[in-house]
């Protein structure tokens, strides 16, 4: 018997009785215990818990809504500053969401000498997150996306036009020698329209500028499929990565993200390869010190392009 059949036979003999799939978030019955064998769930002990957190009261304490919902194109076009308060991009990410001061004296872990931001989001930032229903408020989603992305070492700009992207990129990467752009309308940045049958030739790309499908507010990730990468290796091998998405293309969480992916697939066909990218390549393998730029991009910038530009015929 082949190993395949041997394995499958053993499994068939051993697998337990059929257990149904649970409802996912957003579906009826989500979060309710399984009918047949309710696990003695932790966290549901008796009821003298004084306050239920997570009830609506926690709401967003006045989401800082950077710009009112219908940002007039002109007014923002000049104000394309990085949005989130901590406008510290990549390298000098703030020094670690320090463990509760009480927890350990200086000696502690995050070797104090390095800019050891944990890769975790700033503890304070997403606190405003358990928003009751950010999905209904696009501005809150954008704000959250930006906050989270910056906390994981990325940078975000809201821009009103492609020309603004060009000038910002020139400012940010003045020494870039090799730029590849896959974004319609940004051909002038460098190489574009080419294919690279040997991906090794991409080794010296300084900046790759690509259009992603959408961003995810809860984790700062952007979804991009193969057709938009030029080459699969490009977003990983480039020294710096720039992604462009529509400002309105931010979904609240990963569940919405996968619904969105299904829709995109239905419209554009199936992908052969696709990825979520959340921030620059990073590692904390050496004493938990966060270092940006492990093997791949040292920086990741996301441009959130205002709706109007798309309506005007870009993309």
């Amino acid at each position: 018997m082949s190993s395949r059949d041997k394995i499958l036979n053993t499994i068939k003999g051993n697998q337990p009785a059929q257990r149904p799939l649970p409802p996912l978030p957003g579906e009826a019955g989500y979060g309710e215990p399984a009918a047949p064998a309710p696990e003695p769930t932790a966290g549901t002990p008796s009821t003298d818990g004084p306050h239920e957190p997570g009830t609506a009261a926690a709401a967003t304490p006045g989401t800082p809504a950077p710009t009112a919902s219908a940002t007039p194109a002109e007014s923002t076009s000049s104000a394309a500053e990085p949005i989130a308060a901590a406008s510290t991009p990549s390298a000098n990410t703030p020094a670690a969401p320090a463990p509760d001061p009480a927890s350990d004296p200086a000696a502690s872990t995050p070797s104090a000498d390095t800019p050891t931001a944990s890769a975790a989001p700033d503890p304070d930032a997403p606190e405003s997150a358990p928003a009751p229903d950010p999905a209904s408020d696009p501005d809150a989603l954008v704000q959250k996306f930006i906050t989270v992305l910056e906390a994981i070492g990325g940078t975000a700009y809201i821009v009103s036009g492609l020309s603004r992207i060009v000038s910002l990129l020139h400012e940010e990467y003045p020494d870039a020698r090799r730029i590849i752009s896959g974004v319609p309308g940004l051909e002038s940045l460098g190489e574009s329209g080419q294919r690279y049958p040997d991906p090794h030739t991409l080794e010296n790309v300084d900046v790759a500028v690509l259009s992603a499908h959408f961003g995810v507010a809860e984790n700062g990730a952007c979804w991009i499929t193969e057709e938009r990468m030029i080459e699969r290796a490009l977003p990983f091998i480039a020294q710096n990565l720039v992604l462009v998405i529509r400002r309105n293309d931010i979904v609240a969480d990963m569940h919405e993200a996968y619904s969105r992916i299904e829709e995109t697939e239905a419209a554009n066909g199936a992908y052969g390869f696709a990825t979520f990218i959340a921030g620059p390549s990073k590692t904390a393998d050496i004493e938990q010190s966060l270092v940006l730029g492990a093997h791949g991009p040292k920086s990741m910038t996301v441009f959130l392009l205002d709706e109007e530009m798309f309506d005007a015929g870009f993309f």
Binding site: A42, G43, T44, P45, S46, D48, G49, P50, H51, E52, P53, G54
Partner: peptide
């Protein structure tokens, strides 16, 4: 009492 690992009401 509530456990620090668990996301739930304090008691």
């Amino acid at each position: 009492s509530q456990m620090t690992e668990v996301v739930g009401p304090a008691f």
